[in-house]
């Protein structure tokens, strides 16, 4: 493992609250890949170090010297993160005209939103690029239903679900909980593409 950076908490004991994923996300959101809830339990009351290596985060338990590589958002959503990078480098979609290149703010919003989705345990989405440079997640479910969230950088995130032809849309903030309609549709289904 090629460790290129070390951040935070090394050699100290922390209460679970101190090391909540939310805190880590707020403190290190520029990194884009920190640990998620599965790791939180292992870290409670322990001292640990967090290493950033090759764009992924690794947690090291200082007491036992065991290295735990847990379920990280970027690992869980590897394809989605890659699609974001690809669409930034080669912006394209199905419209007749070329879409805008995602701005740094649009890209950051998308990656922060992906982190939130992964942390919530939702299945990995596919990514599309809207004409104005907005990145958007989407899921086809059981070959008949559909859900999608536009990671709008200027306003709230725009979401929509299509459940057997009944379309519902809405918006929510990155700080809000994910709308229950989306969670419900994505967690009760069998096959997601």
């Amino acid at each position: 493992m090629n460790v290129i950076d070390t951040v935070g908490f090394s050699g100290e004991r922390h209460s679970p609250d101190c090391i909540s994923t939310k805190n880590l996300l707020q403190n290190y959101s520029d990194i884009g890949s920190i640990l998620v809830k599965n790791t939180r339990k292992k870290l409670s009351g322990l001292s640990f170090s967090l290493f950033i290596a090759d764009s992924e985060a690794f947690v090291v338990d200082n007491e036992s010297s065991d290295i735990e590589i847990d379920y990280l958002p970027k690992k869980l959503y590897e394809r989605a993160y890659r699609q974001v990078d690809n669409l930034r480098q080669n912006p394209a979609n199905y419209s007749d005209n070329d879409p805008n290149v995602p701005s740094p703010v649009q890209e950051t919003t998308a990656k922060a939103a992906l982190f939130k989705l992964a942390e919530s345990g939702l299945p990995e989405p596919k990514i599309m690029l809207l004409d104005d440079g907005t990145l958007s997640a989407y899921w086809f479910i059981d070959n008949k239903n559909y859900a999608s969230i536009d990671f709008d950088a200027s306003e709230n995130l725009i979401w929509g679900i299509d459940e057997e032809g009944c379309i519902t849309v809405g918006e929510f903030s990155l700080d809000d909980t994910i709308p229950h309609e989306i969670i419900s549709l994505l967690t009760k289904t069998k096959t997601i593409k």
């Binding site: 419209s95 596919k126 004409d131």
Partner: peptide, 15 residues
């Protein structure tokens, strides 16, 4: 040409 996705999506109607 460089798309890695075969699924149609909403962008078909952005125009």
């Amino acid at each position: 040409h460089h798309f890695d996705d075969d699924e149609l999506n909403e962008t078909l109607f952005s125009d």
